[in-house]
Design a protein around this nucleic acid. Sequence first.
DNA 1: GCCTAAAACTTCAGGCTTGAAATAACAGGT
DNA 2: ACCTGTTATTTCAAGCCTGAAGTTTTAGGC
Lengths: 165, 165
Amino acid sequence: MSAPEPRTPDRAEEAAPVSKQRLRLWLRMLEATRAIEARLRDELRTEHDSTLPRFDVLAALYRRPDGLRMSELSAMLKVSNGNVTGIVERLAGEGYLERLPVEGDRRAMRVRLTEAGRARFAGMAAWHEARVDDLLGNIDAEELDPAIALLARIGRDGNDRDGGA
Amino acid sequence: MSAPEPRTPDRAEEAAPVSKQRLRLWLRMLEATRAIEARLRDELRTEHDSTLPRFDVLAALYRRPDGLRMSELSAMLKVSNGNVTGIVERLAGEGYLERLPVEGDRRAMRVRLTEAGRARFAGMAAWHEARVDDLLGNIDAEELDPAIALLARIGRDGNDRDGGA
DNA sequence: GCCTAAAACTTCAGGCTTGAAATAACAGGT
DNA sequence: ACCTGTTATTTCAAGCCTGAAGTTTTAGGC
């Protein structure tokens, strides 16, 4: 119990290394993702005076000229409702988006980019794409499709502990 | 093979799609990583009453019976010094690690797991490896090595904006 | 119309994270 | 011994994030 060693060399002679390799893959994923995120966050802060969460919100709204409800926004970004409340509040304070009432449902809020917000995001988006292209420059064209396909299979379906309860 | 690529006579004619693909790869990386992180964080919280940052600190210290200095710890985990201060404070409060003076340098702090900390991590580590193995169960054995190799090339070397200044 | 359950948000406490500023201690030169 | 610059660490403000609890409004059943 004190050391995570391969316990049963008899039957699981091949299963153990594979699980180790999966763990290694996971650590590399984390490492790579965090390195790039750190880079983007830093430059977003120093050169664009913004943050990744703000960028994500602007990006989601940019393709929706009519805006989104708070709950749609949080579902799309996969963050909690309360989280979106705060980010939207700050972005609205900065003049990049506006909150509108939803006709027929006084509980709901529709949130939409202002013109300033559209212009703001357009500038950041071009920078962002170029920057990501550069940071992933190591990956050649023919490697992209397979890598995308592989990652698309991770974290989606029911790899639940209970095989499908 | 899947995309009918013309032979790109012009310079920018191929650069654009590749950069789009790199962006797509980045978004998939983010998506997959966040999905798994969310899963692990949730179960770590509900089933082990802990968090990912705490787990990371315990993991780093587990392989170092003599402990680590605060600065070594933050360098290893690639987070700020101030961040580590807080996490270590909480873990020490919970009795899982202890802070010792460093002989010959009264500025420095050595941090080491207690016996309770070792036992605590040993339990979580087995769970963690099994859980990651399950969450990445979609990835077959023969895909692991190439994927690991590809990710190892991301986020490391100088893909800096200034090509080598 | 009234009641209850559900939905859309917000608020809050607690924790994580960073970058900047503050403290304390060391190291080297004079 | 005294400065000066550097190193190790903590402190702090601000933001991000979650899950839980609270508010207001809607929808459905009666």
